[in-house]
Nucleic acid binder design. Structure first.
Lengths: 139, 139
DNA sequence: TTCATTGCGCAATATA
DNA sequence: TATATTGCGCAATGAA
């Protein structure tokens, strides 16, 4: 974009740039077929460009909808996973927690995971479970 | 939008609708201050409307970014939860699976969940775990 | 009628 | 130089 000098000036009779001979040089006549050709081609380009913009906007709209669905689904899955974890916890406590000694030391767990660090959160959770602590943060 | 009769016709000298008295009735003069007032107000409205559109587009763009982040985070959490489940499974199998009899009948599990049906997926998973079946679908 | 939207063309200018 | 974008005004039309 640019500051420009005067918007479309649309109708009005006045000046036309020059008229034909192109006295100055730039303004380009305005009655020439060359002028019309240029204009027509530009109008075409404008139309095309705007079409493109519209398409993009539409697609973006669709993308938003799509992402919203995906999000919902993911949250749904998380809910289920959390429930599963809760159940396992109960089973865990009811089974080993009371009956016999729960031989779960951190070393034992530490071995089970020789991978990345994020999983440590899982370990912590497990430790709490084994000790009968409260649920703890569940994503 | 509408079919219209002739685009902006912009410059050109020709007709102006009428001229002043408004011989016909509709076309409205074009040199009147009334005309200009109307035009100016419309131009203002147009500018405003386009601004609005632009804002919306921008916000939509932001929304997409936001949703993408959220999605990533959710997938991340799911990954963690799945790992936790995996660990619990191992603990489960190593602890009760071999040592003594695994007294986990479906009735027992069924009681632990008197809630919605989605959780049944969790139950199924648990049953497979208790029986030492393969991991099964993990969201 | 007033304001809001929208298709369209013009011209300036950004890109290529 | 040719096409692509963009700001802007006009007029038709939609909405209030």
């Amino acid at each position: 974009m640019a500051p420009k000098i005067e918007g479309g000036m649309s109708s009005e009779s006045g000046e036309e740039s020059s008229s034909s001979g192109g006295t100055s040089s730039h303004p380009i006549p305005k009655t020439t077929e060359e002028y019309r050709k240029r204009r027509d081609r530009n109008n075409q380009a404008v139309k095309k460009s705007r079409m493109k913009t519209k398409m993009k906007t539409q697609q973006m709209q669709d993308r938003v909808s799509q992402l919203l669905s995906e999000n919902e689904e993911l949250e749904e899955n998380i809910k289920i996973l959390n429930k599963e974890l809760g159940i396992l916890k109960d089973l865990f406590l009811a089974h080993a927690g009371n009956a016999h000694g729960v031989q779960l030391n951190e070393a034992e767990l530490a071995q089970m995971l020789s991978e990345d660090s994020e999983i440590n959160e899982g370990v912590n959770l497990l430790m709490s479970l084994a000790k009968g602590s409260p649920p703890k943060a569940n994503y």
